[in-house]
């Protein structure tokens, strides 16, 4: 337990020191890692805890980003109400898409995939409202009260603070009776039903909470990127979010962020000299499935516990 506290303090100190020791490039990349890590974490609430493989999390991410962008640029709404509206829009969409929990397994994957494509299609084709392929540009930097967050380093700190609060909430959620019930459902639905749980209702609520976290990632993303186009709603983003969680380790808090770090750093680094960088990501994913099915966190855990190997 005390090791965990020390670990958190050391990690926080390192993260806080990054802007003063690293270049702006790395600060920006790390911000991106944190934002996509949050998106991966939101998908992992369903995958790692409730056992549902969702392929539509880019939808909530993009809808909240578009909402903020359109409100700010077209209607001059200020940061805080725009961000709240973004969160509400993404979460409401999640409440609708959550009807997917009526299905399981491959049907759940397919229905969420279809839901995701609906949003992408709207973003792509409804050009008069969403700006089509060009998206929405020139989103102003966020301002909280009188405080404008302009520099990359300041925004990085802002994301860190928001994340710290979110992760605390996530941690409490996953250790609460509700979170435990989700893991019980993942393990045996029929047993949970006979213990008195309305499994569908639990999954429905979990889906909405997951959508809320994805929307929050969307809000952080739009102020980082300052523009949004249909790529944000695309299928690859949903897949990457899930892959980040799997590579880092599902059912953990740190895992999705580690996965996000691996994927984004590799992409930025490898794509500089190797055109087919996605092939490298593919290889990494295959290696994960073969040798570390529980991701990086799973590897760390099995090293620490000695020999209880959980390989395939």
């Amino acid at each position: 337990m005390s090791y965990r506290v020390i670990g958190i303090v050391v990690l926080a100190a390192i993260l806080a020191a990054v802007p003063s020791i690293a270049s702006e490039y790395w600060v920006a990349l790390l911000t991106q890692v944190l934002i996509f890590g949050l998106l991966a974490l939101s998908a992992d609430l369903l995958l790692g805890h409730a056992g549902l493989f969702s392929l539509c999390h880019a939808a909530f991410f993009a809808v909240s980003a578009y909402t903020v962008a359109i409100l700010q640029t077209r209607y001059g709404v200020t940061t805080i109400p725009a961000a709240v509206a973004g969160l509400v829009a993404g979460t409401l969409l999640a409440a609708v898409f959550a009807s997917a929990v009526r299905t399981r397994g491959v049907y759940f994957i397919l229905i969420t995939l279809a839901f995701g494509y609906i949003v992408w299609g709207v973003a792509h084709r409804w050009a008069s409202f969403t700006g089509g392929d060009n998206g929405v540009t020139n989103v102003p930097p966020p301002s909280l009260g009188g405080l404008q967050i302009v520099t990359k380093a300041h925004y990085y700190y802002f994301v860190l603070v928001v994340l710290a609060i979110c992760l605390l909430g996530y941690r409490i959620l996953t250790t609460s009776p509700f979170g435990l019930a989700l893991r019980g459902i993942k393990s045996s639905e029929s047993r949970m039903r006979s213990l008195g749980y309305r499994v569908g209702a639990h999954l429905y609520v979990a889906f909405i909470i997951s959508g809320f976290y994805a929307s929050l990632a969307g809000v952080l993303y739009i102020y980082y990127n300052r523009f949004v186009n249909p790529v944000a709603a695309g299928f690859p983003i949903s897949v990457e979010a899930i892959l980040m969680a799997i590579i880092g380790g599902t059912g953990t808090i740190l895992g999705p962020f580690i996965g996000s770090g691996i994927i984004l750093v590799l992409r930025n680094w490898v794509s500089g000299f190797f055109h087919y960088y996605t092939a490298v990501l593919g290889l990494i994913f295959i290696a994960t499935v073969l040798w570390a099915p529980n991701g990086v966190m799973g590897l760390i855990r099995s090293w620490r516990s000695g020999n209880r190997g959980e390989g395939a």
Binding site: T175, S176, L180, A181, G184, G196, Y197
Partner: peptide
């Protein structure tokens, strides 16, 4: 223990509690 806690919480409204650890 977790199995048993799930069993004991299953018929109470506490199973919806989200804001404090079950332990």
């Amino acid at each position: 223990m977790e199995n048993l806690l799930l069993g004991m919480l299953g018929t109470t409204s506490q199973k919806w509690s989200m804001f404090r650890p079950v332990t």
